[in-house]
Amino acid sequence: MTATIVLYFFILVAGITAVAMLFVRNVFHGALLLITILLAIAGIYVLALAEMIAVTQILVYAGGILVVIIFGIMLTTPIAGEPLRVGNGYVIPGALLGISIFVLMVYLISKESFSRSADIQPQGLRQFGIALMTDYALPFEIAGIILLISLVGAAVVASNAQSKKF
């Protein structure tokens, strides 16, 4: 019973914060709202017995990506003067797109009844590591290579040095 109340609390926090993100006019406020959503979703993962994803969410998203994004905000905002106001464009097509996708998904979800398995149990780190090294060894390696390539590429693209070659 307590778990259900906490779950609905996290769902409400994530939903309300996401709606607030639609109306934000300051880039930095948008990043702070995204941190709130990510932490609420991490709480939902804990309640859904997916501890590994919850820890990864907090470490990678709230600790890594958001720091990089705030760094980017500081680098792309004029230092002097008032903060940048984010404008809106294509409001009616965007609202139509979002509402139609939302209505479609809600209709499809409400047609089916999804129930969770009765004998669900927490997946420990041990099972996770064994699965990563046996069944998912190839995706694991490919993910590592993609991560390496994209990080080297990001460093090259963002570097200040002007190469003579291209």
């Binding site: 880039v27 905000i73 792309t76 940048l84 809106n88 409001v91 965007g94 979002g98």
Partner: peptide
């Protein structure tokens, strides 16, 4: 679609 800032 709507927001006019690349970071958002």
């Amino acid at each position: 679609v709507v927001k006019r800032n690349m970071i958002i």
